[in-house]
């Protein structure tokens, strides 16, 4: 956490903007470059920005969900949208599309919903990683060689 007024001000503004951009990326994804993975990374980077600017405690309060559960929900959601194929006697992950595109969003089908699952999974996993690394309480410098005089670290 860096104590910088510029960073904190910018981070406060960037949070909604980055989330919007990530959703835009997600929706744009199935016809143009973008998609659930990139969108998820963008959303996660929005949260990581909060961690850097305000510290992990604040970031946890600002987004009060269990990130691993978000990821797991994403996996279930992803797996779920392959099932319509199986139930209609076609292979898993067979795509189904609505006949008409919805204005402003585009064609909607199971691959889009699949992508939303990917989006959730990526957000959950990446933020969880960032939190684990950020909340590490002590920083031990990497040591060259163990010397006998040093106390043995207690087993974690």
């Amino acid at each position: 956490m860096y104590d910088s007024i510029v960073l904190r001000t910018v981070a406060r503004f960037m949070l909604p903007l980055l989330f919007l951009l990530s959703v835009f990326m997600l929706i744009r994804g199935h016809n143009l470059p973008g998609g659930g993975f990139v969108g998820g990374l963008l959303a996660a980077s929005a949260i990581i920005l909060q961690i850097i600017a305000f510290g992990p405690d604040y970031a946890r309060q600002a987004i009060p969900v269990s990130h691993l559960q978000v990821a797991a929900t994403g996996v279930v959601f992803t797996a779920l949208w392959g099932l319509p194929g199986l139930l209609t006697g076609q292979p898993y992950m067979t795509a189904f599309w609505l006949p008409e595109p919805i204005p402003g969003i585009g064609k909607i089908g199971t691959p889009v919903l699949f992508d939303i699952g990917v989006y959730l999974t990526v957000i959950g996993v990446t933020t969880q990683l960032a939190f684990i690394l950020a909340e590490e309480p002590l920083f031990y410098p990497m040591r060259k060689k163990a010397t006998p005089s040093e106390p043995v670290a207690p087993e974690a």
Binding site: M142, R143, K144, A146, A156
Partner: peptide, 25 residues
């Protein structure tokens, strides 16, 4: 990406427990 993240945190924990960066320790 996932594997390297895991192995870095593992090495970090190992460094905490062993107090050394040397594989021979």
């Amino acid at each position: 990406f996932g594997l390297i993240t895991f192995i870095m945190s593992l090495a970090y924990r190992a460094n905490q427990a062993v107090q050394s960066d040397d594989l021979d320790d």
